[in-house]
Design a protein around this nucleic acid. Structure first.
Lengths: 202, 202
DNA sequence: TGTACATCAGTGAACGCGCGTTCACTGATGTAC
DNA sequence: TGTACATCAGTGAACGCGCGTTCACTGATGTAC
C-alpha cells in the first residue's frame, strides 16, 4: 500500500524518529531492535533503510531530535516568570521518573551514548551545547557565558538524581532523592526555593 | 581439564564476577554476551550455569559486588585526613572518564539498572545505601544521618558529570565539566577546595 | 601402597530466537500524450 | 477525458550471526578398601 503524496517520506521519517525516541528511552538503544521499532511505527523492517543508512545513523538522528525538542520545550516554558523552579520540580518529579519514554533523553541514555560511535557523541554534544546555552540565557540573561558552567553542574545533578531514583527499588528513598536534589539544584541556580522542607502530597 | 581443589568453585565464581564487572562497565549489560564473557574468564559458555542461574542472576550479583568493592575502596582511602578532596578529584578525573571498566559502576550502568528486573534494582539499592552511609560517616562523623542527603546529592552530581563528560566528543568541554563539577561537589560536601580555578596540567 | 570408583567443575555442540541488513518485488500515485 | 507508463515508498522473505540456555559428556581429583 504505497499511496504517497509529496510530504509522505519526510512525514514517515519523522514518525520513525518519534517512535525511536520513545522506544530508546524506554528499552535502551541496545534493547530496541530495528524490526520491532518499525512495527511500532506501522511499517515493515525493510522500509527502514530508505530513511536511514544504518541503526547508528538513526541513533545519531534520534539523539539530535530529542535534545532539540527538549531545548524547544524549555524555551517555551521559560517565558513565564518563576518558571525555572517549576521546570526543575517537574524534571525531578515522580511522574518524570516513572515515564522515561516521554522524558529527558540524557537521563535515559547517557551511559549508552558514552559507549556509542563518534557520530552519536557528536550529535549529543551539539544538542547539549544548544540546550545548555538556551538555559543559561534564560537563567542569567545578563551574563549567560559564566552561567553556563553552573547550568551544566545543576543539570548533571538533576540527571544523576533522576537516574538514581529510577534504579532504586525503594520508592520512599527514590522520592527523597528527587526532593533533595531539587532543593540543591535550585540553590545552585540561584533560584528561591518556595516549597516546604517536606512537601505534602498535593 | 577439571583439576579442582576445594576452593576451585568459589574462586571461579569470583573470577566470573570480576570479568563481568569489567565487561559490563565497558560494553554495557545488553552489550555483553554470556559466551564472550566466559571466554574472557578463560572458560567455555556451558560452565556459566554451574555458577549462576541466569544472566540476570549474574547481573544482580555483579552490581552488588561492584558497589561493595567501591564502598571498601572508599573506606580504605577515607582514613587519611583531607582525603575527601582527593577522592572527589580522582572520581572526576580524565583518567576515570577514559577507563570506565575499572571505574564507578553507577556512572557506567545506571541507565541499564533503571531498566532492569526488581532483583537487580534491589541489589543496587542495598549496595548504594551501604556506600552512602559509609561516605556520610566519613564526611560528617558527628551527624551522619543528616549528611546522607547531601552525600546523595553530591554523588548524583558526580555521576551525572562523569557520564556527560563521557558522552561528549569535545575533550576540552569534557574536562571543563569535570573541573566544574568537582568544585561544586566539594562545596556541597563542605570541603575546602585547595585547587586553583584553572588547574594546570600536572 | 596400589587399585577402583564416585564426584563434579568444566567442555562444547546444539536449541530456537531476534538481531542488523539486503534485495527482488508490489502497487498507488503523478505525469505524458 | 482516458489510457500507458515511470516513479518510488513500502513489503516481506532471506542472509549470517550472536544471543541466552540446555545437556550429554569428559577427565582429574579425593576417597574407600
Amino acid at each position: 500500500m504505497a499511496r504517497y503524496g509529496k510530504d509522505q517520506k519526510p512525514a514517515t521519517r519523522q514518525r520513525i524518529l518519534d517512535t525511536a525516541g520513545r522506544r530508546f528511552k524506554r528499552s535502551g538503544i541496545d534493547g530496541s531492535g530495528v524490526a520491532t521499532l518499525m512495527a511500532d511505527a506501522g511499517l515493515t523492517n525493510g522500509a527502514f533503510y530508505a530513511h536511514f543508512s544504518s541503526k547508528d545513523d538513526l541513533v545519531a538522528a534520534t539523539i539530535g531530535e530529542q535534545l532539540a525538542r527538549q531545548c524547544k520545550n524549555f524555551v517555551a516554558m521559560a517565558q513565564r516568570p518563576g518558571s525555572v523552579e517549576t521546570i526543575v520540580r517537574q524534571y525531578l518529579s515522580p511522574d518524570h521518573r516513572d515515564h522515561p519514554d516521554e522524558g529527558c533523553p540524557s537521563a535515559a541514555l547517557l551511559d549508552e551514548i558514552g559507549r556509542s560511535t563518534p557520530a552519536v557523541k557528536q550529535s549529543y554534544t551539539d544538542g547539549l551545547l544548544a540546550f545548555v546555552d538556551a538555559v543559561a540565557a534564560a537563567v542569567a540573561p545578563d551574563d549567560p557565558t559564566s552561567a553556563r558552567a553552573t547550568v551544566l553542574d545543576a543539570f548533571a545533578m538533576m540527571v544523576g538524581a533522576l537516574q538514581i531514583s529510577r534504579a532504586v527499588s525503594d520508592e520512599v528513598l527514590a522520592d527523597e532523592i528527587l526532593d533533595g536534589a531539587a532543593a540543591k539544584a535550585l540553590a545552585l541556580l540561584g533560584v528561591a526555593d518556595t516549597s516546604p522542607d517536606r512537601p505534602s502530597a498535593d
